[in-house]
């Protein structure tokens, strides 16, 4: 009884907030409604007994994706009213075609029925004696390992794409070069500094400037040459 009630509550709020995502005028509000929708979906998952999915949904979608959306929306300051202007021109025909498609999809829905196996599948959400996460893991990493790896490549390509299209190496920027730092020897020393002593007492230690270092190196090499 309680489960049924909460299901309808979650579902109703989910649909209502989804509608608000599309209709609200302020993009920030849209994103906030999206977050609400995610929470409700997580609730639905919980009711269905998929607690792992519910948590993932909250962590990934609310914690990361939606917040990223918020950032983007706030940073870009998109004028949605202006975007809609172009949309208005097509609205009448668009509405007609949309309506036709919608009616057809409803007709399709009318013919829908459960597959014979669906009922059995629903009663056994996962093999008994296995936790939620482990069941997911089996599906992801064993049954669908091929697709899982392929998805990984899709994400890799997305990352490469983002870098290719946006990363610019500007001249004059100073970037950290870890290899150089690690390989540096002799120019940085660790000193134990007496307690209570200020800069006045111990002085400022500076790395030797390259101009000073150059001749030294040359001399050093000469020395070697002499020995051989």
């Amino acid at each position: 009884m309680i489960a049924a009630l909460s299901f309808y509550a979650f579902a109703a709020i989910l649909i209502a907030s989804a509608v608000m995502v599309v209709t609200s005028r302020n993009p920030v509000h849209s994103v906030l409604f999206l977050i609400l929708a995610f929470f409700n979906a997580a609730g639905l998952f919980l009711i269905a007994g998929a607690e792992f999915l519910a948590m993932i949904l909250v962590i990934v979608y609310v914690g990361a994706v939606a917040v990223l959306f918020l950032f983007v929306v706030m940073m870009l300051d998109i004028d949605f009213a202006q975007l809609r202007e172009g949309f208005q021109r097509y609205a009448p025909i668009g509405a007609v075609i949309g309506a036709i498609l919608l009616i057809e999809l409803f007709m399709v829905l009318a013919t829908w029925r459960f597959a014979p196996e669906a009922a059995t599948l629903r009663l056994n959400p996962m093999p008994s004696g296995v936790t939620n996460a482990e069941a997911l893991g089996r599906i992801l990493y064993t049954d669908n390992v091929f697709l899982f790896q392929a998805c990984g490549l899709v994400l890799l390509v997305a990352m490469i794409g983002a870098i290719v299209l946006t990363l610019r190496e500007r001249p004059g920027t100073r970037r950290q070069s870890i290899a150089e730092q690690v390989a540096r020897a002799g120019t940085v020393s660790v000193r134990s500094v007496p307690l209570g002593a200020g800069l006045k007492e111990i002085g400022i230690a500076r790395p030797p400037s390259p101009e000073e270092e150059e001749p030294k190196q040359v001399e050093h090499h000469h020395g070697h040459g002499g020995h051989h």
Binding site: L83, G86, F87, Y90, I93, G94, I97, G98, I100, L101, E104, M107, V108
Partner: peptide, 27 residues
């Protein structure tokens, strides 16, 4: 930006219209 969005919308619109025609034809 203006021109692009306008055009892409009409492209997308054509696609959806084509889809609707085919679905209607078969449904």
């Amino acid at each position: 930006v203006r021109l692009q969005t306008g055009r892409v919308a009409s492209y997308a619109f054509t696609m959806i219209a084509g889809l609707a025609v085919f679905v209607t034809m078969l449904a």
